[in-house]
Simulated scan of single mutants.
Amino acid sequence: MKNKLMKMMVTVGMAGLFMAGCGTNSAKEDSYDQLVQEGEIIMGLDDTFAPMGFRDTNGEIVGFDVDLAKEVGERLGVTFNFQTVDWAMKETELNAGNIDVIWNGYTITEEREEKVAFSDPYLDNSQIIIVLEESPIQKKADLAGKTVAAQQTSSAVDAITADDSNIIKDFKNGEVLQYPSNNDVFNDLASGRSDAIVVDETLARYYMKQNADIAYRVLEEDFGKEEYAVGMRKADVKLKKAIDDSLAEMKTDGTYEKIYSKWFAE
């Protein structure tokens, strides 16, 4: 609560008074010592991104990334508190000091590297193309003239835009239909408003398993491979090292595999 109040004071223009007394998690200062002293790291996430970070039937935020963060927190002696953010504003929230990390199936891209510092990658992923079972679409070229949807400002949109074939120009209206969440994207396909969707494979496989009553089909072609990492402010060099070291230790001592198996085992 104390940390959130201080950040609110900065936001409303009281930065001078606040900095004089307590310091700040600004984009220009390494905030690690302050975060450890306060015992709290605010983790920004999209709470619909299963199985990385999402709300369960009791409304609790759970997931693979959530469990990883909790374990890292124990090793660093801090508590990770989870804060839902507008995914389109995640980097803005980070650099404004409203959150301390972005950790929610966050893909490394060149565009994002200009705005944030990334941890070492901890999970491989790809951007897959999904259609309904009866769809005539069999390959990427068949998307010409079709409505294709993805989550707004997501790595799926980046991957489509960066595709060497410039296929986006052939989509209906020459664009990707974008929605705030991946749940909206899947609902759009299920309702027939979209002909195909492009989604992170990690989320998509989990979602389709949970919604087995809908007949989905994944194309063999995709929009490329990628890696997940934790996003931090560029000034947070000590925080990056602490998270990198903790994740590396977890992979060495078997903790990472234990958490992975909980969420991804067949």
Score class of each variant (00 low, 15 high):
62 V>L: 09
25 N>Q: 13
147 T>M: 12
47 D>Y: 11
149 A>M: 12
259 I>C: 06
78 V>M: 11
9 M>A: 04
126 S>P: 03
125 N>A: 02
167 I>L: 14
118 F>S: 07
151 Q>H: 03
94 L>W: 06
199 V>K: 01
36 V>F: 05
19 M>T: 00
181 S>I: 05
48 T>R: 05
46 D>G: 04
109 T>S: 07
162 A>D: 14
40 E>D: 01
81 N>W: 05
214 I>F: 03
5 L>A: 12
235 A>Q: 00
41 I>G: 04
94 L>M: 11
73 G>Q: 08
174 G>A: 10
217 R>H: 10
91 E>G: 07
116 V>W: 12
46 D>T: 03
94 L>A: 08
186 F>C: 05
72 V>F: 14
72 V>T: 13
170 D>Q: 15
94 L>N: 07
140 K>F: 03
206 Y>N: 08
169 K>G: 06
247 L>T: 03
30 D>E: 05
147 T>N: 08
253 D>H: 05
100 D>G: 09
164 D>P: 04
162 A>L: 12
65 D>F: 05
119 S>T: 10
110 E>N: 14
258 K>H: 12
89 M>F: 01
32 Y>P: 03
108 I>P: 00
54 F>V: 13
43 M>D: 02
69 A>F: 13
96 A>P: 02
47 D>R: 10
261 S>R: 10
209 K>P: 01
11 T>C: 03
70 K>G: 00
195 D>H: 08
126 S>A: 08
190 A>D: 12
91 E>M: 12
39 G>F: 13
121 P>M: 09
177 L>I: 08
40 E>P: 00
74 E>S: 09
31 S>F: 10
200 D>L: 14
241 K>M: 10
141 A>T: 06
16 G>Q: 12
178 Q>C: 06
29 E>V: 11
190 A>G: 04
200 D>P: 15
112 R>D: 04
246 S>C: 07
97 G>P: 02
172 K>G: 00
186 F>N: 01
178 Q>K: 14
6 M>T: 00
7 K>M: 07
157 V>S: 06
4 K>S: 07
104 N>P: 00
228 Y>M: 14
136 P>R: 08
78 V>K: 13
215 A>D: 13
248 A>L: 14
204 A>R: 03
215 A>E: 04
103 W>Y: 15
97 G>F: 06
47 D>Q: 09
261 S>Q: 04
113 E>F: 07
11 T>P: 00
73 G>I: 10
136 P>F: 10
188 D>L: 09
69 A>M: 15
203 L>W: 05
93 E>P: 00
